[in-house]
């Protein structure tokens, strides 16, 4: 019943636009776009576990730390290039995520939030304290990604690494969420009990949602590490986890494109407010509040509402 061809063409068109755009943009904007993409990957993980599956997670910063530090350490200590290092770290994060998900057996709501918060705090202290491995508070240099003998360090070069990966992941997750797995996740959010009566292993699927969020968080973290070139445990704390939740709320928290929209807002808008100097923070916070109040369902929701209004004869909404 799904029209397969049209969405596919749209994806193709999107990819073409994304690949062509940097040729007409400045290095600075391309760098920013790359950061938006890596942030969006981390946010995508949260969309799955917190948005679709309804499990509060304040652990996303911990997973991105596993990805960033994991890949950087594999590269510095074992010479593993990032294109293997990041997937390896992501697998590790996925396993960790699965473990964390199992902890949700007896926990819900704010207790789960606290346990995920604890994970972030513990990982952060571990990174700070294990100095011989991670450099501790002094930070860790991320070795540049080298492909075919060439070091990819400019915003421009890294864009062509991060954005295609983001594209592939978004495409993959999109299809995944439209499949049976996505429906199970959505059912988790709406009624665990109903799922249980259907004989579905609720705990396994919750853990799976966490595992996916962990893997995505790690990929995003690893890629962003390549972009920022320097890792500091300070940047992987509870506040950072909370910011990622705010990103998906602004984007529209079950919405997959919302992850990109929210990331774009958080990366771009503060810069546009530069004119307010020291008052920039207040203006930004007020803007966030306005967005929350005016756009229930986030920016993606607002987009949907706008589109619906423009096409009153559209078929039944999903």
């Amino acid at each position: 019943m799904r029209r397969v061809r049209r969405p596919f063409l749209w994806w193709l068109a999107l990819l073409a636009v994304l690949m062509a755009w940097p040729l007409v943009a400045s290095e600075y904007r391309v760098f920013q776009a790359g950061v938006i993409a890596s942030t969006a990957i981390m946010a995508l993980g949260l969309v799955i576990v917190t948005g679709v599956a309804g499990q509060v997670s304040l652990a996303q910063a911990a997973f991105s730390a596993i990805g960033a530090y994991g890949a950087a350490l594999l590269a510095t200590k074992l010479g593993v290039p990032a294109y293997f290092g990041i997937p390896l770290a992501a697998a590790l994060a996925g396993v960790a995520g699965y473990g964390l998900g199992l902890a949700s057996l007896r926990l819900g709501g704010h207790y789960l939030a606290l346990v995920t918060m604890a994970m972030t705090a513990i990982v952060q202290v571990g990174l700070t304290h294990w100095e011989t491995l991670t450099g501790g508070a002094l930070g860790l240099m991320v070795p540049p990604l080298t492909v075919a003998g060439k070091e990819l360090t400019s915003g421009f070069a890294l864009y062509y690494v991060v954005v295609p990966v983001a594209f592939a992941l978004f495409l993959g997750v999109s299809n995944l969420m439209a499949s049976r797995l996505g429906r199970v996740f959505a059912a988790l959010r709406q009624s665990e009990v109903a799922l249980q009566t259907l004989g579905i292993n609720v705990l396994h699927y919750k853990a799976l949602a966490f595992a996916l969020s962990g893997a995505l968080g790690a990929v995003g973290g690893g890629l962003q590490g390549l972009q920022t070139t320097f890792l500091d445990p300070h940047g992987f704390g509870i506040i950072e986890s909370v910011v990622l939740v705010a990103v998906i709320i602004i984007g529209g928290f079950r919405s997959i494109p919302g992850a990109v929209l929210g990331s774009a807002v958080f990366v771009l808008i503060p810069e546009l407010l530069g004119g307010f100097q020291a008052y920039k923070g207040v203006v930004w916070a007020v803007l966030l509040l306005l967005m929350i109040v005016l756009f229930p369902g986030g920016l993606a929701g607002a987009g949907a509402a706008l589109a619906a209004r423009l096409r009153p004869n559209a078929g039944a909404a999903r």
Binding site: A25, Q32, V260
Partner: peptide, 22 residues
């Protein structure tokens, strides 16, 4: 449907973002 919106939205955003490269 969401993807179409995403593309048009991104097109607008990218046009805004594009700046001089020279």
């Amino acid at each position: 449907m969401t993807f179409k919106r995403l593309i048009t939205g991104m097109g607008v955003a990218l046009a805004v973002l594009a700046g001089p490269a020279i």
